[in-house]
């Protein structure tokens, strides 16, 4: 396929994902509000926020890295999208996934995080740095069960190519990794909770301790960029888990439904469970989910 056509489809896909991310965020917030006996915001509130932020005139910057932080962050989100095959067996919706496999995506997640960390770091507010140090610390523990799960399914399917993993899950719901390797799925889905930033792993952005962290220092267009990223990232990470564990998607509708439920899983848990402190969450993550991950590998090896 020509590069121009390819780029066109990639941008289209990005547009769809972005919109779905914004709408999904609205829906979820509505659901949360209703569950807490509130009326809640409009479903389109994320759109309104985005437009408002992009159009704010006063812009302040603390320095080069502060400025570049959101760019890194958004690059991270978009980058994952770029290397992710969206729809099974569809060349036009496979983006640039030929350039790298699962490992690339797993490591590219760090790109945005690093950028955000550096940008917020230059913001000069100590609370930003505190939040980031907590977030990074917790992230290291979150990654361990996820890695074990990835190793487990990579060994199971004997490939690291996401397209290939999806292809191997076709032909019925029982072929999904969820059923062929349930332990890996459980381990990974626990990691997913952490990655999505809801309770019990959301002390990182704890509002009462951290009222003026990145979201406040970053305002206007910067915040807009970050919100754009958040919308993309939530969907695309859900897509990753969908591809790995839930049979992928053979059309856009399937993708939307599956990503909604996958994302909702983290919201649901967050509603039910209280919050960990970082020094609690790390040992917890390193115990039960890691054990499950190890067991999943053991089972695959057997």
């Amino acid at each position: 396929m020509e590069l121009a056509t390819k780029t066109g489809f990639v941008l289209l896909g990005l547009f769809i994902i972005l919109n779905w991310g914004l709408i999904m965020a609205g829906i979820i917030r509505k659901i949360i509000a209703r569950a807490s006996m509130r009326r809640g915001i409009s479903v389109f509130q994320p759109y309104i926020n985005l437009i408002k932020n992009y159009s704010i005139r006063s812009q302040l910057t603390h320095g080069v890295m502060f400025y570049l932080g959101p760019v890194f962050r958004l690059s991270g989100g978009v980058g994952i999208f770029l290397f992710m095959p969206l729809i099974h067996d569809s060349e036009i919706w496979s983006n640039f996934s030929f350039a790298g496999d699962l490992i690339l995506i797993a490591y590219f997640m760090f790109f945005g995080m690093l950028g955000m960390a550096l940008g917020a770091g230059e913001g000069g507010h100590p609370y930003s740095a505190i939040g980031i140090s907590r977030g990074l610390a917790q992230f290291t523990a979150i990654e361990v069960p996820l890695t074990l799960a990835i190793l487990s399914i990579a060994f199971q399917y004997n490939t690291l190519s996401i397209s290939e993993i999806v292809a191997r899950q076709q032909g019925g719901i029982l072929n999904w990794t969820l059923f062929t390797n349930p332990l890996a799925t459980i381990a990974a889905m626990i990691s997913f909770l952490g990655a999505m930033g809801h309770a019990p792993f959301n002390v990182v952005m704890a509002p009462q301790e951290n009222p003026i962290g990145p979201p406040t220092e970053y305002h206007g267009t910067f915040l807009g960029v970050l919100q754009t990223n958040r919308a993309i990232l939530h969907v695309i990470e859900s897509v990753l888990f969908m591809n790995l564990f839930f049979g992928g998607a053979s059309n856009w509708f399937e993708l939307i439904v599956k990503t909604f439920f996958i994302y909702f899983w983290s919201v649901f848990v967050g509603m039910v469970f209280p919050r960990f402190r970082v020094d609690q969450s790390i040992p917890w993550l390193l115990k039960i989910p890691v054990l499950i991950g190890i067991l999943s590998i053991v089972f695959i090896l057997l």
Binding site: Y54, R57, S58, Q59, L60, T61, H62, G63, Y67, P70, V71, G123, G124, H125, I212, T216, E217, G220, T221, F222, G224, V225
Partner: peptide, 19 residues
């Protein structure tokens, strides 16, 4: 894209933070 959107960004001093 960011440069376009925030071309008027103003550099602030070290302690110009909400604290």
């Amino acid at each position: 894209w960011l440069l376009l959107m925030s071309r008027k960004a103003q550099k602030v001093k070290q302690f110009n933070i909400v604290y």
